[in-house]
Design a protein around this nucleic acid. Sequence first.
DNA 1: GTCTATAAGCTGATAGAC
DNA 2: GTCTATCAGCTTATAGAC
Lengths: 224, 224
Amino acid sequence: MTAQRRQPRSRPETLARRRDILDAAVEIFGSKGFAGGTLQEIADQVGMTHAGILHHFGSKDQLLIEVLQHRDETDVADLEEQHIPDGMPLFRHLVRTAFVNEHRAGIVQAYAVLSAESVTDDHPGRAFFEKRYRTLRSEVAHAFEVVCAERGITTPDTIADASTSILAVMDGLQVQWLLDPTAVELARASEFAIEAIVTAVLSPTPSPLADGADEHAQPSRSSV
Amino acid sequence: MTAQRRQPRSRPETLARRRDILDAAVEIFGSKGFAGGTLQEIADQVGMTHAGILHHFGSKDQLLIEVLQHRDETDVADLEEQHIPDGMPLFRHLVRTAFVNEHRAGIVQAYAVLSAESVTDDHPGRAFFEKRYRTLRSEVAHAFEVVCAERGITTPDTIADASTSILAVMDGLQVQWLLDPTAVELARASEFAIEAIVTAVLSPTPSPLADGADEHAQPSRSSV
DNA sequence: GTCTATAAGCTGATAGAC
DNA sequence: GTCTATCAGCTTATAGAC
């Protein structure tokens, strides 16, 4: 596990070119989607022909896959510098990420658009996002387990629901924020929701929704 | 405000045909996205040629717009039968919706895919989703105002953050659930998150995240 | 490594017969 | 109202010159 991740495929000049293409692809796929964006547009942005791009990546599908991997490696590298937080600091890190994201609309949009598009039939990014969410969920769940253990709380289902919910709010807020930045305070709302969910795990309270009379439509035995 | 919404454009036979096309379009756009889905596929599903579809709707863009309007009218009609809930019952209604959605993966996917895709450049569904979220947010916010007023709580920012967050979790959970239904309990997690957020509004607690030492990276004056 | 040229296919949309 | 025929345009991808 040294510094160099894989053997350089070729001259550093070529690798730099590949990185240029990957950066351009993030921007185009982010602003047009994968199905909507074209190799031509990516080629224009980086100043070559679409044939040149296919020379480097073989196919459009493969380009998307490498775009996602590259983005992930970059983000993970950033994280590792601050050696991955755990326990309560992880939740603080997620809030901080939301504040940072407020100034990176481009990358936020790329993830928002591509993750949702990845659920469509035969989408080349599907495996990536499936794995990504699985990993993120287990990281957040582990943080919950740490803070819960300290306080003697053990509620596996709750931890699972809370973990997936925290990632879900962050994603959902991004979509609403991208649609109307003036109507949604991305960072502040993310902080509020994450605090609400963490609090619900650490200090369970009776459900505020459980008092109505005629809820579940199914005719159950009437409890006087 | 009688039963018929607009004057029938033509024979009821034609309207039925249009509805068939709209239903097919939801399915195709839902499973392939708007950019990825084609008029040909929609035509095949309904048993005609793509020229026939263009005869009815004029353009692919216009078809999407009418698809979204039609879906919305259908859903709203369902809601009005149970005359739109408000206050605490609205939150219960949202939870119930999550339970129903667990058995309607097709429609869930259509909304998830199209709403995220709508943030891309010049997407014909953008105006629809902008308005949709604006409306939903204000409805949820109003429900919060009702229950807050009963208890003498007034926190406009909190209500805004909570309202947008509730819609956000529901959306975000749907994406994760569509990617891996075995890993996410859509309804249960939605219920947990909504309860957590409602509780946070009604019974504010000190932030569980505020105790760490070296948070915000910026070198502020050290408070000993 | 990048280009030009070319292929083969599909796209949304139009015109006109029935 | 639906079809066939046709269009121009654009898509990804390949082959081969430089």
